[in-house]
């Protein structure tokens, strides 16, 4: 690994670059929920996808199945883990930590089922894309004004 000639690797200069924060896309048809052999990964009634750490057997099938690469094996608990959308916070009426901390307020969080709510209003008024739409995962994370080259 250390002998790998990194200096000689040709790095092409990109014409254009993007900053795309990647997080669990909270898919409506989640591949990770589908493949979990014991049902330890589940979708809550309000749409978040969570892992039951008491039930996960650590087979890592979900890590392979997630198209967004957002699952990992937690080295401390030894089971699969993922972004919980700060489930403990949003159930106390708070915003997820990433939304609250973002200094430019680039992230919005809201209730997708609330048709006239601020989130749905934003989705209607902006050009919205999801990541990897061809996989039919129907993500509930939307990107505004993103280029179609972003995967």
């Amino acid at each position: 690994m250390t002998d790998f000639p990194l200096e000689e690797t040709r790095v092409e200069k990109p014409d254009k670059s993007f900053f795309v924060p990647k997080l669990c896309n909270a898919c409506d048809h989640s591949p990770c929920v589908q493949v979990c052999p014991v049902g330890a990964t589940f979708e809550t009634p309000d749409g978040a996808v969570l892992v039951d750490p008491e039930y996960c057997i650590g087979c890592r099938y979900c890590i392979q199945a997630c198209p967004y690469g957002t699952r990992f094996l937690n080295p401390i608990t030894g089971v699969a883990d993922k972004c919980t959308l700060c489930y403990h916070r949003i159930h106390n009426g708070q915003q997820p930590a990433c939304v609250e901390n973002c200094p430019t307020q680039a992230r919005l969080f809201g209730d997708l089922k609330d048709h006239d709510g601020p989130l749905n209003q934003f989705l209607r008024e902006h050009k919205i894309q999801v990541l990897k739409p061809h996989l039919n995962t129907y993500p509930k994370v939307f990107y505004s004004g993103i280029d179609k080259e972003v995967r």
Binding site: Q34, V35, C36, P37, V38, G39, Y55, C56, I57, G58, C59, R60, Y61, L73, G78, V79
Partner: peptide, 26 residues
Amino acid sequence: PLLSHLAKPLRFWEILVTPHLTSAMA
């Protein structure tokens, strides 16, 4: 090999007792 690959091998019986029917592995 499957069993020894599990991060929690002692929970393997959950696959047999409570299989998730949409999972190919179960």
